[in-house]
Write a protein that binds this DNA or RNA. Structure first.
Lengths: 188, 188
DNA sequence: AGTATGTGTGGTTGACCACTCACTCTTTGG
DNA sequence: CCAAAGAGTGAGTGGTCAACCACACATACT
């Protein structure tokens, strides 16, 4: 009978994954400096002390969360590429853009990327995570779409424009300037 | 004789302007949550307590710094528009882009804008300052260049791409993905 | 000269935060 | 069944930060 009894404790690895998943919501609003490890712990349903058993310090924790976000973004782009109608760079990029728009309809993922960019300026470990994330993502987009430098660059430029729109909640404001910035940008 | 003697104390208004100017450098690396009012005070050469005589709280201080940044950006764009060769939207936008590139060759101004965007997510007063700044700037660019929605949008999208490149110091990395992101982007 | 007003600071406070330690309870394996 | 290893926590600790206050000095006004 014991053999079949459910574990009530998670393994450390499972907990680490839970933390990575839930910490996205914790870091999304106030970013690296503005979010406390207590908030991260609460979101994961563990004690603050245990966060420090799973990660050596706040910096590594945030860097791991950032890497996790990039993985999710790439998975979403892969999905987009798979369901593209046609194999021209334009068709693939458009379908990828659509998949990305769906992924970030929950804003948290996008906001963590924005905050990661901001923290990258002063925290080397985070800068490295951001660089590695974009390195892989740019190369993935280039390879999967077959687009040239110009097209790939524009793909990311539009992505950055999304960050701007979401960060100041420009969709909530009905004015010519917001319509200009959001023109043609999908959101769900 | 007394009439001609130099004031040794600044007026509060002069001090406020000094703070706005020097605080850009203070906030540039670690942003709103990561920068202390003591650092802002040191950059301005005054005591931390006096910062709180000049501004009601940290939030208003940062919002004022953000507004100041937007004013400087618009001044720079005006300069660019003035020295454009030709009056076609393309010529004016190109010249404005060049002026902007020169303005942010000192990175601090750009970094404050990036951090403002990040803080806008969770601090309403900062979000309002960022919205107002982009509202005026978008309308200025549209009016001065005569460009259509598409062109104005691309202008800002490329600007956002600059934020990304600078925040992770992508210029320091020599690799295909950095060349793709930075292609055609001027820097001084 | 004297006073009201404005500029500016040292020192403090109470809250909070990253990180640690000693300890308990659970699971695993022999 | 027992011991070793792992999961998990309560209760700190030292340090830092935003904001405040009492006070000193400079200037302007009369």
């Amino acid at each position: 009978m014991q053999t079949e009894r459910r574990r009530q404790l998670s393994t450390a690895d499972e907990r680490r994954e839970t933390v990575l998943r839930t910490a996205i919501g914790a870091f999304a609003s106030r970013g690296y400096f503005g979010t406390t490890t207590t908030e991260v712990a609460k979101a994961a349903g563990i004690s603050q002390a245990y966060v420090y058993r799973l990660f050596p310090n706040k910096e590594s924790l945030f860097a791991a969360v950032v890497e996790h976000c990039f993985v999710r973004v790439r998975e979403s782009l892969e999905g987009g590429a798979a369901e593209a109608k046609g194999s021209s760079p334009e068709a693939v990029l458009s379908s990828m853009g659509d998949a990305y728009a769906r992924l970030i309809s929950d804003n948290d993922l996008l906001l963590v990327q924005l905050h990661a960019q901001a923290a990258a300026v002063s925290v080397p470990a985070i800068r490295d995570a951001v660089r590695a994330g974009y390195a892989r993502t740019v190369e993935y987009v280039r390879g999967a779409s077959g687009g040239d430098d110009r097209q790939v660059q524009e793909f990311f430029a539009v992505g950055m424009l999304c960050h701007l729109v979401v960060s100041m909640e420009a969709q909530e404001v009905d004015a010519p300037w917001t319509r200009t910035l959001t023109a043609g940008i999908r959101h769900y």
